[in-house]
Computed example of a mutant assay.
Amino acid sequence: MATSSIRGITRATLTAPKVQISLDLTNVTEALETARVAVEAGADWIEVGTPLVLAEGLHAVRALRAEFPDHPLVVDLKTMDGGYLEAEMMGDAGADAVLVMGRAHDATIDRVVEAGEAFGMLVMGDDMGAADRVAECVRLEERGVGMIIHHVGFDHRNAHPELGLTPLTDLPGIVAATTVPVQAVGGLSMAQAVTCPGLGAPVVVFGAPLVIDGQAFSPANSDLLRVLTEACAAVHAAEIRYPARQLADS
């Protein structure tokens, strides 16, 4: 079971911005090496990215849990069915958080939430592909997820580069409509990512294409320690801002 639980995290308790390193890699060796650099640079949370889940599965979760027992470990399962079993397997391996898709059936979301309760994990709900992002995020919170992932997908962005798709477009509306912590993911530049806490999304993800090559899914920068150290420092220095109405109600 998880040893560094973030299950009960709320906007009220999330008082300082966090950096999450997304290990969108395809083997455990590179994942461990990259995670060591990220932790040295100041990363707070470690994510087992979907490519790593597919390539190495539970082996990657166990290896990262053993190496980093005090860092929250997020597993990006993108669960669409079999919700309890998938979450249970990752909880047994040491995951602190798992991710279910909003496009999944209500029953699947409910089962992942049940597994989160049983194994002390934070359940993250991903809105990727939803026609109405705000409504989807409200639904996910109503079904019991503890954190919203507002996500503009890799293929969607790459299919329409002329549109400049970014999660920052809908982020303020999603933060205003929900009360659980929100995270924005999808092709953000370093400068854009650092603005997320100021928009009410204080857990900032660095992965592809900033530190992971978005085509080869390998470490993208030979000077990774310097790049990540600067990025982590910028995020940690940012101010978290939630809607004034929510602050008044809290």
Rank of each mutant, 00 (worst) to 15 (best):
M1Y: 13
R7E: 14
G8N: 09
G8A: 03
T13D: 11
A16R: 12
K18V: 00
V19P: 00
V19H: 02
Q20F: 06
Q20M: 14
L25C: 02
T26C: 11
T26A: 06
V28S: 05
E30H: 09
A31L: 10
L32S: 13
T34W: 01
T34G: 01
V37S: 05
E40I: 08
W45C: 02
W45G: 00
E47F: 08
V48C: 10
G49Q: 05
T50K: 04
P51Y: 03
A60L: 07
A60K: 02
V61N: 12
V61K: 05
R62K: 14
A63D: 01
L64V: 09
L64Q: 01
R65T: 07
A66P: 09
E67D: 10
P72Q: 03
P72L: 03
L73S: 02
L73G: 00
K78N: 05
T79M: 09
M80P: 03
D81V: 07
G83C: 12
G83V: 07
E86I: 06
G91T: 13
D92R: 15
D96T: 06
V98H: 10
V100M: 05
V100H: 04
R103C: 13
A104F: 11
H105I: 07
V113A: 05
E114M: 10
E117I: 08
A118N: 14
A118I: 07
A118K: 13
A118M: 11
A118P: 03
D126Y: 07
D127F: 04
M128I: 13
G129W: 12
A130T: 10
A131Q: 15
D132C: 08
R139K: 14
L140M: 11
R143Q: 15
V145H: 11
M147K: 12
H151I: 03
V152N: 03
F154G: 03
H156S: 07
N158E: 02
H160T: 14
G164V: 10
G164M: 07
L165W: 05
L165K: 06
P167M: 04
T169G: 07
D170K: 10
D170T: 13
T179P: 01
P181I: 02
Q183W: 05
G187V: 05
L188N: 01
L188Y: 02
S189Y: 08
M190G: 08
M190W: 04
A191D: 15
Q192N: 04
A193S: 15
A193F: 02
P197C: 02
V205L: 11
V205Y: 09
G207P: 02
P209E: 01
V211C: 06
G214M: 06
A220F: 13
A220D: 15
R226N: 11
A231S: 12
A231W: 00
V235S: 01
H236C: 01
A238K: 00
A238G: 04
R245C: 03
Q246M: 15
A248L: 14
